[in-house]
Design a binder for these strands. Structure first.
Lengths: 146, 146
DNA sequence: TATTGTTATACTCTATAACTATA
DNA sequence: TATAGTTATAGAGTATAACAATA
């Protein structure tokens, strides 16, 4: 059986509120205070998907090419990414993450997971509560990836 | 019975990933394109909690007083908030939301809820799925408010 | 003196417009 | 001509330091 419009609406409101509040709380935790969310998002993309051009990164992050150029400049100066020219098409710049960049992303993810795990532990949630949260997480990912 | 460390860690990772992705997806929806998340957060606070001083707003948003002064300047120019001096303590500035500001917040929330409800509807989730999402939302709010 | 808020200044992220180099 | 990227410039949001007004 499919859900009623009313149930959909109530669920959307609850979930929207909870999602924004939790995301906001977790976003404070990062490996380096000087690292912005925008920079972190680029590094996370490079870590997952490997080498990318400026244009591809800009499209992925929904920003303009000049914005991405500027962000990559900053990350390059800090030693978190490397630029190389694509010899097959010399207009293109290939951006790849460095070991230092990979480390920053891993540390930030670890800190956020640690923080969230601690918060969950403090509330003394049952195994059933945790199962509910994992089931909801799977549903939320389906929503985003639909 | 309380949950194992391993279950906590796995749940934290799942939930962190799902929360960031969904928040990012929903954040795109807003009533006015020119309205930033920072501005929206201030308006939402004023709408919920009424009149606030600059310092109180700055603490609530975890930014400095000069940053909040600048943000309130912008919101005042756009007509979304009003400044008045606290006559009981003339150092203080009382900030309150205008009708236009209230309307913008309501519209943005409505758009995000509509978007999320549509996304949920498209996936044809069962009543049980929606119940899981609502239960998880309640747990997530407990985590943030702990 | 301590508190509240503003001004001055600077850095990052964002944008649009105009440009260079390459295809 | 079209595409990939950069430079120039501007606005918003953030910070710290120094200041004015008030308690």
């Amino acid at each position: 059986m499919s859900a009623s419009d009313e149930a959909l609406r109530l669920t959307a409101t609850d979930l929207r509120l909870a999602t924004f509040r939790l995301a906001r709380r977790l976003r404070c935790a990062r490996a380096v205070d000087a690292m912005s969310d925008a920079q972190l998002a680029v590094l996370a993309t490079l870590r997952m998907h490997g080498v990318r051009t400026i244009t591809a990164l800009a499209e992925g992050e929904r920003v303009t090419a000049p914005s991405m150029t500027s962000m990559i400049n900053g990350l390059e100066e800090q030693g978190y990414v490397r630029r190389t020219t694509d010899e097959a098409d010399r207009r293109r710049v290939l951006v790849e993450i460095t070991d230092a960049g990979t480390e920053i992303v891993a540390q930030t993810i670890q800190r956020r997971d640690d923080l969230l795990a601690e918060m969950l532990a403090e509330l003394d949630f049952s195994d059933e509560d945790l199962a509910t949260l994992r089931a909801a997480s799977a549903l939320m990912r389906k929503v985003v990836e639909r």
